[in-house]
Simulated assay, not measured.
Amino acid sequence: MNIAYSPCPNDTFVFHAWAHGLIEGAPALDVTYADIDKTNQWSAKGEGPEVMKISFAALPWVLDEYALIPCGGALGRGCGPLVLTKEGVDEPSFLSGKTVAVPSEKSTAYLLFRLWAAQQVPGDVGEIIVMPFHEIMPAVRDGKIDAGLVIHEARFTYGEYGLHMMTDLGNWWEEDTGLPIPLGAIIAKRSLDVSSITKWIRESVDYAWENPEASQDYVMKHAQEMSVDVAKSHIDLYVNGFTRDLGEDGFKAIESLLGRAAEEGFVPKFDLELLRK
C-alpha cells in the first residue's frame, strides 16, 4: 500500500510499526516522505498515494474521493501554530500590509491564521508567501519577511532564532471555541477498505505507545537534525488520545473549524456529514 506522511517525529512515531511490518495482517507500506504542502496539493488533484497525511483545512476539496480516517492524525490542545516576528511586537495591527510566510495555502495553520486575522488585524494583511516550514524562521530572522506562521517543533526552537511570538493561534482557538485544534488528518481513497486501514493505524499507534523506544532510530533518522529531546517533546505534544481516536470532541472541532471557514468563504461549502462517512 502506498502512503505519504511527513518526516516529522509524530508521523514517524505513529507509523513506525506498520512501516516496519510489525502489524499482523497489514500490507507492506511504500512510504513517501512529503511536506504537508505537497500532500495537500496531491490530494486536491486526486494524485499521490492512496493514503496520505494532509491538513484538516484541505478536507473540503477532497472528501468526495477520500475518506477521513478517525485516527493517526494530529489534533490536540496547546499545540497550535505560532505567529512569529523579529520585532518584539504584540499588537496584531502590526501585520496590516505586512508580508507573512505560511507553510501551505491549504494548511490548518493558515486557515486558523485567516480566521484570527479576520477578527484581530485591522485592514488587510499584506502579501502571503508559501514557504517550506523549516525555511520560515530563518527568513523572519534575516528580515526577508515581516512575520512567519510556524508549526511543529518550531514552537520549541523559535527562541534560538531570536524571534518573538506575537500570538499562539492554538490558544486563541481554544479560548474562542473551547475545542481542541485540528491540525493534520489521515485520509484514504474511498475505494479502499477504510475500516481495515483504521484498524492497522490504531494498532500502530498502540504499538508505539507500548514500545516507545522501538521507533527512536527511525524517528531520528528523519528528524531533520533536531535533538532527541526536541523530537520527544514534539511526539509528546502531537501524539495523544485524539491520535488513537478522534472521538466526538475531535469531530466537533473539525466541524467547527471547517464550518466557520466555509461561512467566511475561506473553503468551499461541503456536506459536513462526509467527515463521518
Rank of each mutant, 00 (worst) to 15 (best):
E175I: 10
R114Q: 14
G73W: 07
T85D: 06
W172A: 11
P132F: 11
A214E: 06
V83F: 02
S55E: 06
L169T: 07
N211H: 12
T32W: 13
A4V: 14
V230S: 03
L82V: 05
Y161D: 10
W172F: 12
L272R: 07
L115H: 08
G170T: 04
H134F: 14
P268F: 09
T243C: 01
G241E: 04
D35V: 15
L272V: 05
F15S: 07
K277Q: 15
V228C: 03
F266V: 00
L192E: 15
N211P: 00
W209V: 03
G76Q: 04
D176P: 01
S107K: 07
N40T: 09
M131T: 15
E135D: 14
H152T: 10
P49W: 07
K144R: 14
F251G: 03
R244Q: 03
D217K: 05
G148Y: 13
D11G: 08
K53H: 12
E213D: 11
D124S: 15
T12Y: 07
P7D: 15
A118P: 03
T85P: 02
R202H: 14
K277C: 09
D90Q: 10
V31P: 04
D11C: 12
T198G: 08
Q216F: 01
H164D: 10
I129W: 05
T177E: 12
L275N: 03
L22R: 11
Y238D: 02
V239L: 01
F15I: 06
D142M: 12
Q119N: 14
H134P: 02
F242T: 05
Y33V: 09
G25F: 03
V228P: 09
A118T: 08
S104E: 04
Q119A: 15
V205W: 07
K86L: 11
H234I: 00
W209K: 06
P212E: 02
G162H: 13
I23N: 00
G178W: 14
I3P: 02
R114C: 12
A17G: 05
Y218I: 03
S43R: 11
N2V: 05
A231M: 08
A101R: 06
S196W: 06
A185G: 14
Q224S: 09
Y218M: 02
L258F: 05
